[in-house]
Simulated assay, not measured.
Amino acid sequence: MRIDKYLSNLKYGSRTEIKKLIKDKKVIVNNEVIKNNDFKIDLKNDSVLIDGKVIPYFEELNLVLNKPSGYLSANKDNLHKTVIDLIDEPFNRYDLKISGRLDLDTEGLLVLTTSGEFAHEITSPNSNILKTYEVLLDKDCNDFTELEKGVIIKDGKGNEYLAKAIAISRLGFCKIKIVIDEGKFHQVKRMFEKIGYIVIGLKRVKIGNLELGDLKIGEYRIFKREELLWQIYYC
C-alpha cells in the first residue's frame, strides 16, 4: 500500500498534510526516511514511525472496554460523551464498530471491532451468543420462575417477543445475575419490569466466553475473537 494512503486511512491528515509530513522527513519506514508519497509499504512486515513514534498495523483490531455509566454507545454525539472518547492513540485512528450497545446508564463489557462481520456475528440472534449481566433491583427478588419460563415484552420497534432467562441466580440482597441469548432494546430492564421490579443498576460482565476480568471502569484491552467465540472455533 502507498504510504500516503496508509497514513490517510489512519487519519493522519489530508493529502496535503501527509505530503508535508513526508517533506519534513517525519515519516520513517524500516529506519529509512521516506521522501516520496507513493512509497509502497508491506503492512504486515514494515515498521512505520512518525515523529519517532511507532505506528502499529492491525489487520483486525478488537477491543474489550469496561464502559462507564454516562457514556453513549456511539462513535459521535453532540450531547453526550461517547465510548470512542475513551479510546487513546493509536487505536482511535481505526474505524471501530460498536457491537452489542449498552444504554447510557449501563456499565460493563462492550466490544469495539474493525470487523463488521465479527460485530454482526456477536449481535445476530442466529449466533445465540450468551450475554451475562449483574442487575441491581429496587427490592429483593427470590422467585425467578416467570423469567425462566419467559415473559412477553416489546422490542425497540414495539413488536412483542418472548424473552427468557437462560440462567438466573441471586448474588445478594437486591442483586441478581442473569444470562440471556439475545440482548434487544432495554431487554433486561423490561424483563424485570414485567414481573414488578425496577432495575436501578445494570452491568454486563460477559459475552460468550469473553469476560471483563480485572479491567477497571473506562479501561480496555486488545483481544482475539477466539476469546469470545471459543466454542464456535474449537468445538
Rank of each mutant, 00 (worst) to 15 (best):
I195N: 10
K203H: 11
I195S: 10
A163H: 10
V188N: 08
E227V: 11
E227C: 13
Y220I: 11
G218T: 02
E227Y: 13
I166M: 13
K203M: 11
F185P: 09
K175Q: 14
K216F: 10
K206S: 12
I198C: 15
K203L: 12
L229N: 12
I176E: 01
K175N: 13
E182K: 04
K184F: 03
L171T: 14
V205L: 13
L171Y: 12
R170W: 03
F192H: 12
A163C: 01
V188I: 12
G213T: 05
D214P: 09
K216N: 11
K194F: 00
E219G: 02
K203W: 09
F173I: 06
H186P: 07
K224T: 12
G208R: 05
L215K: 07
G196F: 06
M191C: 00
L171M: 11
I222V: 15
G196L: 07
I198K: 15
G201R: 12
A165R: 02
G208T: 00
G208F: 03
I168S: 02
E182T: 10
I207S: 12
I166S: 14
I178P: 03
D214E: 07
I180V: 01
Q187P: 11
D181W: 00
K203A: 05
H186T: 08
Y197G: 08
G218A: 00
G218D: 00
K164H: 13
I200W: 02
K177W: 08
Y233T: 07
K224Y: 05
I207V: 12
L210H: 13
I166P: 13
V179L: 04
R170P: 04
K224S: 11
R225P: 14
L202I: 04
G213I: 06
R204I: 08
